[in-house]
């Protein structure tokens, strides 16, 4: 198990190196660049040249890349030119990463909390109106574009429910400990700060949760349908066990394997949804920074954020693979 984990992490280093090289080149292939973004179209050639030189963009690309690698090794990922000009890319990441983690965590929590029970009930009542309604509902969840739903929630639901429609927290005097606003309040005892952060979180989290919810629901339903037909469920029934025991121990525990895989994949995919959701709700997370970064061609910030997203994705899926062994003894005791 340990060897397996180490091997996967070593593979990750290779992935990150190759990805950084490709990204480095791809970003520079985009039309425009930080100079045009910063100075506008009417800048004089002299000032453009001066800024190009200042940013080091006049040098050949492989030299830029090796300089970047050298600095990155010391923890210096460059200075933002567009998202928050003047701040270091690493600071921007550290500032915004907790926001996105918080948002994604609540989104995936909502998706699991609704998707798994609904999937189970749907399978149990296969073909009923409840099942049909849930299946159609999940299709709508997948089909409606995230940004559209986000705008609907922002413009309609927020006023109807009296929830805030932008930002992570109102400008209240909250103590910062971890950068996770909902957690900070719990640690410091400032419950109103936590509550305020949660109010800001709920709508974007729902918008972000729709697609993972729909996928988790469908996979759970299919997995439970498979397991319900298994002989061991009939054995459990023949033992006269109570319905909750059969559900938990015999059906769900066996149906969870594909569901856990899906949750891992969806957690990774959340980031692409976060770009849209965070932009709509002006939620100062990694997704919003990526959106602004692309508009303003902020190379250092884009590079760092995308690499970090990759690392998170790989680590989440590694954790998923490791959790298989916990769920399925056939993998553990092989």
């Amino acid at each position: 198990m340990l060897r397996y984990t180490i091997r996967r992490l070593v593979q990750l280093v290779g992935v990150v190196l190759v990805l950084s090289l490709l990204l480095f080149a791809w970003l520079r292939l985009l039309p425009g660049g930080p100079v045009s973004a910063l100075l506008g179209e009417r800048a004089t050639p002299e000032s453009r040249e001066a800024l190009t030189k200042q940013l080091g963009l006049d040098q050949p690309i492989f030299i830029q890349y090796f300089k970047f690698l050298g600095r990155a090794a010391t923890g210096d990922f460059g200075v933002s030119t567009g998202v928050q000009p003047g701040d270091s890319a690493l600071d921007i990441f550290l500032q915004r990463f907790p926001a996105t983690v918080e948002l994604s965590f609540f989104a995936i929590l909502i998706a699991i909390a609704v998707g798994v029970p609904l999937g189970y009930l749907s399978a149990k009542r296969r073909g009923s109106w409840f099942d049909n309604l849930s299946v159609v509902g999940s299709l709508i969840g997948v089909a409606v574009p995230v940004f559209f739903l986000a705008y609907v929630l922002k413009d309609v639901a927020s006023s109807a429910l009296g929830l805030p429609s932008s930002g992570r927290q109102d400008a209240i005097d909250a103590t910062r400990v971890t950068g996770f606003f909902t957690l900070d309040g719990v640690i410091t005892g400032e419950w109103d700060a936590t509550f305020n952060a949660l109010e800001h979180l709920i709508l974007p989290a729902i918008a972000l949760a729709t697609i993972p919810f729909a996928v988790i629901f469908r996979i759970t339903r299919a997995a439970v349908l498979d397991v319900l037909d298994e002989d061991f469920v009939r054995t459990a029934e023949s033992k006269g066990l109570t319905a909750p025991v059969i559900r938990r121990r015999h059906v769900l525990r066996n149906a969870m394997l594909p569901v856990v895989t899906t949750i891992g994949l969806q957690t990774g995919a959340l980031l692409s949804g976060a770009v849209l959701t965070e932009k709509v709700f002006s939620f100062a997370g990694v997704g919003e920074a990526l959106a602004i970064g692309f508009e303003r061609r902020d190379y250092p910030v884009l590079l760092l954020l995308i690499i970090m997203a990759t690392i998170v994705y790989v680590v989440v899926n590694l954790l998923v693979d490791l959790s298989y062994a916990l769920i399925d003894p056939r993998i553990r005791t092989r």
């Binding site: 002989d231 054995t235 525990r253 056939r330």
Partner: peptide, 29 residues
Amino acid sequence: RGRDLGMVFQDPLSSLNPVVPIGLQVTEV
């Protein structure tokens, strides 16, 4: 079921829950 009437099925592998230890499958009844 399980108290007054017991049942043994055809395929012993598929009739046992693969992710639950044998002990628990006996004790739960």
